[in-house]
């Protein structure tokens, strides 16, 4: 590859920086100009001067942080020129509005993928493979033990549990942006037409999905009183993980506690959360999809933003691929 693709991006305390274009991508501290890949709170933070992101990511940021989340905002549509570089957004298949950011200058190209997934998700456009000289990848599930099962199989397990325990409400922990709606859509796809109850913290993002043409079926607020909650036999209730530590749960009689996350593949993780029904449903690439993507894109070099970079570096060594860990701090697995 032309050796200078790596000059397109550099690392600063605020995050990944493009000197020629004078902007950051998913910075963890407030900066003058930020390009945001998607609305998860570890990637999209409030307080930047100018924000460039997909229209949906901008909407999501406004929902989460209020209209004044940035000095100015611009929706990314088509190619743009920032300073001396050309910028393009491509779908990442992670959550509604999620994008990869392509940065091109002087005949070389870098792609910052943010978080991404190769499993079809009806809430967003599929990941678009963009050939590039430098690919910046996440490594959240970069260990060969992570093979996410087909999400439909996990939903089938959930529905089998609902059938086995028809008198118990099933409370599913799922993050508010992406995972909650994904679980709802998977349930609908599996033929579950009954009302699904959602915790108040999910309402606005579910409404936004509906407004964006993502069908979620009959949703009802799970803010009922104790008597009503006890009557909810066999219903599916979705809530953000934080709700499970709050007294909100106490209104349900003998619920089955489930949690939808890629981490649920590891039993110790599921036990740690006190989960009765772990559901392995992820918005990220698992090991096979991650390594397949790297082979397919075949970039001259790839960088690893966060996650299990040690294992991915070992893989790169075995495959004789050039790679570099960035050790970016501030990216949590929060949204998984």
């Amino acid at each position: 590859m032309p050796a200078d693709a790596t000059r397109l991006l550099t690392l600063r305390p605020e995050g990944l920086y493009c000197p020629e274009g004078d902007f950051f991508i998913d910075p963890v501290r407030p900066v003058a100009r930020a390009l945001i890949t998607h609305g998860h709170s570890d990637h999209a933070r409030a307080g930047h001067g100018a924000v460039l992101a997909s229209a949906q990511t901008l909407d999501i940021m406004a929902i989460r942080y209020g209209e004044g989340f940035a000095g100015s905002r611009q929706a990314a549509e088509g190619p743009l020129t920032l300073g001396g570089v050309e910028v393009r957004f491509h779908p990442a298949g992670h959550v509604l509005g999620s994008c990869q950011v392509e940065v091109r200058a002087g005949g070389v190209k870098a792609v910052v993928s943010g978080d991404y997934s190769r499993v079809p998700n009806p809430a967003c456009a599929p990941f678009e493979p963009v050939r590039c000289d430098l690919f910046v990848t996440e490594a959240t599930f970069a260990l060969p033990v992570f093979h996410h099962p087909p999400p439909g199989d996990e939903i089938a397990r959930l529905l089998a549990s609902v059938a086995a325990f028809p008198e118990r409400a099933h409370l599913i922990g799922a993050y508010a942006l992406g995972k909650a709606q994904r679980v709802i859509m998977l349930l609908r796809a599996a033929g579950h037409d009954a009302p699904i109850y959602i915790h108040g913290a999910l309402e606005r993002l579910c409404d936004y999905h509906l407004a964006q043409g993502v069908p979620l079926g009959d949703l009802r607020p799970a803010t009922m009183d104790k008597a009503e909650a006890r009557a909810l036999r066999g219903a599916v209730v979705i809530a953000p993980p934080s709700a499970f530590a709050s007294p909100w749960v106490q209104r349900f009689a003998d619920p089955v506690i489930a949690f939808a996350s890629g981490w649920m593949q590891i039993r110790a993780r599921a036990r740690q959360r006190g989960v009765e029904l772990p559901l392995v449903i992820s918005d990220h690439v698992d090991w096979p999809d991650l390594t397949r993507t790297l082979r397919e894109l075949n970039p001259g070099e790839f960088w690893i933003t966060h996650g299990r970079d040690d294992a991915l570096m070992r893989w790169a060594e075995l495959e004789q691929r050039r790679a570099r860990p960035l050790h970016l701090l501030g990216y949590e697995d929060e949204a998984e």
């Binding site: 060969p144 033990v145 992570f146 590891i266 110790a268 294992a311 893989w315």
Partner: peptide, 26 residues
């Protein structure tokens, strides 16, 4: 499976049987 990748995985999962079950190539 590469020995180093296995060791990292085992370290993360914490249980030998579970590590082998998960890492076994499909």
């Amino acid at each position: 499976v590469d020995a180093e990748l296995f060791a990292m995985s085992y370290d993360f999962v914490g249980d030998l049987a579970e590590t082998i079950a998960l890492i076994w190539p499909a």
